[in-house]
């Protein structure tokens, strides 16, 4: 763009006052993006199968649903919600711990300043991407098919889903460290274990804990719904009450999930503030 301005000013000794923020190519590609989004939107609206009567009816139906949920059945908490909620928290925590077994080696393989081979990057990236692409509920379906309904399926679903998240963020954190201390350690002839422990680890530590806590927070939310496909936790209680149309019990379960999720978030935010 600049060179264009100069050539004009040399020949005509006039300055081109018209200022453009973007080059023509950028402008065109931006419009192409807008246009393709518009086309996608129009196509979607035209082809999606939505029954408009259902849509107009929705506010009424939602109001009806909430009316049936009231009053919340608080006695249901002692009967089954409490135990299921503890189980849910355990699934989330255990799943987060189990995921570290897979995520840490994959993060090492994916970080170019630990393993330089492109093969190892491709292999680790394949696992990380597949783990992230498949939703935890779908992982839970798979593991319920393998281990039968129960807690094991839930823990493994949480673990397999988190691998991609923790592995990716951890490998990015490892790649961002300052290599000076690592090189200094290598120069002393330290074995690789010592290099990992004293070169990489101290620099990655805050990021590691904050990533794991962040994922734990997400896992608490996700483990609350795994029971819908039979993988243990509060979801099973929720599903049973819904199948029995016991909406007041459903409201109790939802309230319990809401409170636990908010508490988990507050805990994580406070710990992360201290860490960073």
């Amino acid at each position: 763009m600049l060179s264009g301005v100069f050539s004009v000013s040399e020949t005509d000794s006039k300055i081109d006052h018209h200022w453009q923020r973007f080059t023509l190519k950028k402008q065109l590609s931006r419009y192409a993006v807008y246009l393709s989004f518009l086309i996608a939107l129009v196509l979607s609206i035209r082809t999606v199968e939505v029954i408009p009567e259902f849509f107009y009816d929705a506010p009424e139906q939602i109001a009806d649903l909430f009316a049936r949920m009231w009053p919340i059945s608080f006695e249901f908490y002692q009967i089954s919600v409490h135990e299921a909620m503890i189980e849910t928290l355990n699934i989330a925590t255990l799943g987060t711990l189990v995921t570290l077994i897979f995520a840490v080696p994959l993060a090492f393989m994916n970080a170019s300043n630990i393993v330089a081979s492109p093969w190892s990057h491709w292999i680790s990236r394949f696992f990380l991407v597949s783990s992230r692409s498949i939703n935890s509920l779908i992982w839970a379906l798979l593991f319920v098919a393998i281990f039968g309904p129960g807690v094991i399926a839930g823990v493994l679903a949480i673990a397999f889903r988190s691998v991609g998240f923790i592995g990716k963020l951890l490998s990015e954190a490892i790649e961002e460290i300052n290599m000076g201390s690592v090189e200094a350690l290598r120069a002393t002839g330290a074995p690789w274990g010592a290099v990992l422990l004293k070169g990489y680890w101290p620099q990655v530590k805050p990021a590691f804990f904050s990533i794991v806590l962040f994922r734990w927070d997400i896992n608490v939310r996700e483990s609350a719904v795994l029971g819908l496909v039979g993988a243990g936790g509060i979801g099973i209680v929720l599903n049973n009450s819904m199948n029995l149309f016991e909406w007041q019990q459903v409201a109790m379960s939802l309230l319990a999930i809401f409170v636990v999720v908010i508490m988990a978030e507050i805990v994580v935010v406070n710990i992360r503030k201290r860490l960073i």
């Binding site: 259902f54 849509f55 929705a58 939602i62 009806d64 939310r221 609350a224 719904v225 908010i262 978030e265």
Partner: peptide, 20 residues
């Protein structure tokens, strides 16, 4: 604070099965 699945259940109950 609610997982999409829980919201989805409530919407399925209120607007019926399907894309809506």
């Amino acid at each position: 604070s609610f997982h999409p699945i829980i919201v989805a259940i409530l919407f399925v109950k209120s607007v019926g099965f399907g894309a809506l």
